[in-house]
Amino acid sequence: MANAKNTYKLSDEDLMARLIDTGEHDPITELYARYSQRLLGFFMKMFKGDLPKSQDFLQDLFIKIYEKRHQFKTSKKFYTWAFTIASNMCKTEFRKAPLESIDNHPEVTAKFTQDTDEVDRKYIQNRLKNEIQTLTDEHRTVFILRYVEGFSLQDIAEITETNLGTIKSRLFYATKKLAHQLKDCQPNNTSYYG
């Protein structure tokens, strides 16, 4: 039990190594404490803020991590591996039940009619959040991973199990589409956002 109390000192990969060796719950509990918040946020972004669904997916994700712990290579980053599983779970879910189009929500589309002179950071954030949900699953995933979660292009290629060229292409066209949708949010002072 003395070792269990020291799990917070270990790196993610060391925790996974201990989890593989012992099967104890302490390492997975520590990993959950470290990343559950961020992974829950990822699921919520992917599922349009559906908290109960995101909570379920978070639980399932860590159960998968626990069950498939022997597939983890300690030479790789745990964080990337966890997001790979999370991304695959979302992909599977989107295949089963495609997300309802955001255009069907009048409360969201109503915001689009607001006067562009009142554009401020908050308004743009809300607009952007809603427009991100209109992207295709592939575009939304890479956009969130890159510009919201802050992953490197190489990590995203690993997480989505594609190549770098595909990631760049998806990001390019996702940004292009968002810019087209948010054309009315043209910034007057670009340095404000830089």
Binding site: H25, I28, T29, Y32, S36, Q37, L40, G41, M44, K45, G49, L51, S54, Q55, L58, Q59, F62, I63, Y66, R121, I124, Q125, L128, K129, I132, F143, Y147, V148, G150, T175, K176, L178, A179, L182, K183, C185, Q186, P187, T190, Y193, G194
Partner: peptide, 25 residues
């Protein structure tokens, strides 16, 4: 505009703070 979108994106979901439920294996 594109530059503004990608620089705004990290703070887009700031208000969506949820507390994860305890892990049950």
């Amino acid at each position: 505009l594109r530059k503004m979108l990608i620089s705004t994106a990290p703070s887009t979901f700031e208000d969506e703070v949820a507390i994860p439920a305890p892990l049950v294996i």
